[in-house]
Structures are given as structure tokens and as C-alpha cells.
Simulated assay, not measured.
Amino acid sequence: MLKEFKEFAMKGNVLDLAIGVIIGGAFGKIVTSLVNDVIMPLLGLVIGGINFTYLSFTLKAAEGDKKAVILNCGQFIQNIIDFLIISFSIFMVVKLLNKFKRKQEVIEEKKEAAPSKEELLLTEIRDLLKEASK
């Protein structure tokens, strides 16, 4: 069982997935910092100094012992912006990788389309043999 697990864990796809998760976690922290520390303060400044983290709406005021009913939507808005930035960044990386992959496929197709040196040499020998036998 241990041997099977080792074979499974050492497969390329599992290692690629593990690396992707680790890099994704680190990338998520960077994007969260970008949103929290750069984008949201600028956005708050543009719309009148509102800090989105604490943005909320009171649906019903507190009455006696009952607490107020408050809709806290600031953190939700911030999470949506995080998601949009992360998904756009991932889209750009995938697009870039696909571009490189397509270029590599075109290069390989050109290599396959052109005859190899051996084929050219064999063709030349064949043609010489045909001329000599005439």
C-alpha cells in the first residue's frame, strides 16, 4: 500500500497540482493585499471616503433589548473584487501559456512538414540510382 501511494504521489499531475495549490495560496495573499491596501482605499476615496470593509446598512434599528438588524455588505463587496482580480489574473496566465503552447505546436508542425536530412539524402541517392540505371 505504501509503494502504491508513493507511485501515486510521484506522478506528474499530483506534483503539478500540489505546486499549483501552494502558488495559488501565495498568489491569493498578494491579491488580497492588493485589494485591501491599494484598490479599496482608492475606490473609497473616489466614492466619497467610504471604507468598504465596514460598509453596512441598518435594516431595523435596535429596540430595547433587541439588537439592530444590520446588513454587512462591505466585506462581501471586497471579496467579489478579490475574486474578479484573481480570476482575471488566472485567465491572463492561461492565455499566455496557451499562446506559447500554440507557438510550440506550429514549430513542431513545421519540423514535421519539412523532410529530415536523412530523407533528403535518401531521396538524392534514389534519384542518382534511377539515373544510373537508365
Rank of each mutant, 00 (worst) to 15 (best):
D127W: 10
K3S: 14
I107M: 13
F76Q: 05
R102H: 14
D127M: 11
L121P: 00
C73F: 15
V38L: 10
N51M: 08
Q78S: 08
E112A: 12
G25D: 06
A62V: 01
I23Y: 08
I80K: 07
C73G: 12
I125V: 04
K130T: 06
K103M: 12
L45V: 01
I80F: 04
I39P: 01
K95Y: 15
V93Y: 10
A114W: 04
Y54D: 08
D127P: 00
V46C: 02
L45A: 12
N79E: 13
L55P: 00
S33G: 03
G20Y: 08
G28H: 13
D65T: 02
K67Y: 07
G24D: 09
L96T: 02
N79M: 10
K60I: 05
G48S: 09
L71H: 00
T123L: 13
F83S: 08
K103A: 07
I125D: 11
S87R: 02
M10F: 10
L43W: 07
E63S: 07
E108R: 11
M92Y: 11
L71G: 01
K67E: 15
E118R: 05
K110A: 05
T123N: 15
A9F: 08
G48D: 11
L128M: 11
L2F: 10
V93A: 10
A18M: 12
S116M: 08
A132K: 13
L120Y: 11
E4M: 07
I47Q: 04
A114Q: 10
I19F: 09
I19H: 07
K66L: 13
G64D: 05
I81H: 08
A68I: 01
K66A: 12
V46W: 15
L128W: 12
G48T: 00
A18D: 06
A9S: 04
K3L: 10
S33K: 11
L71C: 00
S33N: 09
D16Q: 09
T32P: 00
F88E: 14
A68G: 06
I30R: 01
